Computed example of a mutant assay.
Amino acid sequence: MLEARFWSTEGAQGDRVDYWRNAICEAIFELDFDSTASAMDARLSQFEIGAVKLSTVSISAAHEVIRSREAIARNNLPRFNLNYIRRGSWTVEHCGHDIALSPGELVLLDNRQPYRVRSSEGADHVCVHLPIEWLRCWIPQPEDAVARPIRIGTPWRAVLAAALDDAPLIADAAPGNDNLCADQIAGALALAVGPARSMNTTHTRLIYLRIQRAMCDMFHDHDLDAGRVAAALGISPRYLHKILAREQTTYGRELIRIRLERASTMLRDRRFDALSVADVGWRCGFCDASHFSKRFRDAYGVTPGAFRAALQGMPASAH
């Protein structure tokens, strides 16, 4: 289950503005916060999703947030922050730009540079913390995208917004989904801000992630083949194989990897102790127990039974 952390001014002792200032410094990084509404309501929910940290924030009253040079000197975290406005409006001063943002719009901020955010009526937004080196695997020069608003009507904006809206639910649905969700966010961001010359590469990466997700949903089917996965995605089998080749892999290799990852998860989980090793393999799409054992040993260096025994402290022959 996806772990979450929560902060709320409801029930806060003392001044709510002071409480919230401390809360966002703890949850996000060092910021100064001010509001003239001492009785304001504010909530923050935070999720670790693969390489990124996603926070949903709701503040009922007008407010101002400042990332100062002094705060940067004390707390210079190498991250970008992608902000998606769901309700209300923002004005942002950052890197020499004055930006007005409306609901549905997004902007990337550089945590290493000062900024000021104002909301005249309160707002709901999503803030995603993106490690710099990780993001550079998707966008060669992410600094070029900083303070460039992603407006309604921008190509791929809707895809990026949907990825942010759905990430906590999808990441919580099954083991391994968190990294896929983080990659989908980065891929959609690259498409929304990237130059035209990088569109083909990023589009290929997104199709590859969709293929992985479909295979993760269907891996237990013993008769699963590339044609069925391609049909589920609305692409041809030939195009599916072409995309996988560009990622330096094959359909068979990806399917075995996904099935083995799921099998290793089940072997670790005490809830599946009643299942034999062969039953675990069967549920993960392996028709033949000896084939499952060989593939597992090739990938993990031990048989499935020895893997389970080492983790659970039982003789390898117990299952």
Rank of each mutant, 00 (worst) to 15 (best):
E3C: 01
A4G: 01
F6C: 06
D15V: 05
Y19T: 11
W20P: 13
N22G: 14
N22S: 15
I28Q: 07
F29Q: 10
D34W: 06
A37N: 15
A42P: 04
A42H: 07
L44C: 12
L44G: 02
F47S: 04
L54D: 02
S55F: 01
S58H: 11
S60T: 12
E64K: 14
A71M: 04
N76A: 15
P78W: 01
R79K: 09
R79L: 13
L82H: 09
Y84H: 09
I85Y: 04
I85S: 04
I85N: 06
S89C: 13
W90G: 01
W90Q: 08
W90C: 02
H97M: 10
H97L: 06
D98W: 00
D110E: 11
D110Y: 00
N111F: 00
Q113C: 12
Y115E: 05
E121Y: 00
V126M: 13
V128T: 10
I132S: 13
W134H: 03
R136D: 01
W138E: 02
I139P: 11
P140D: 15
A145T: 03
G153P: 05
L160K: 10
D165N: 12
D165S: 10
A167G: 05
A167E: 03
P168M: 08
L180K: 06
C181W: 02
Q184V: 11
A186M: 04
A190S: 14
V193F: 03
R197D: 12
R197H: 12
M199A: 13
N200P: 02
L206G: 00
I207A: 09
L209S: 07
M215P: 07
M218T: 12
F219A: 13
H222R: 14
H222K: 14
D223Q: 14
D225H: 13
D225T: 06
A226G: 10
G227C: 07
R228N: 05
R228C: 05
V229Y: 08
A231I: 00
A231P: 00
L233G: 05
L233P: 08
L233A: 05
G234A: 05
S236I: 06
P237T: 08
R238M: 06
K242D: 08
I243Y: 08
L244R: 11
L244V: 08
R246W: 03
T250E: 10
L255W: 04
L255S: 01
E261Y: 02
E261V: 03
A263E: 09
L267T: 02
R268D: 13
A274G: 09
A274W: 13
D279A: 15
D279Y: 00
G281D: 08
W282M: 10
A289P: 15
F292C: 07
R295K: 12
A299Y: 03
Y300H: 13
G301R: 13
A318I: 12
A318S: 15
H319D: 05
H319L: 04
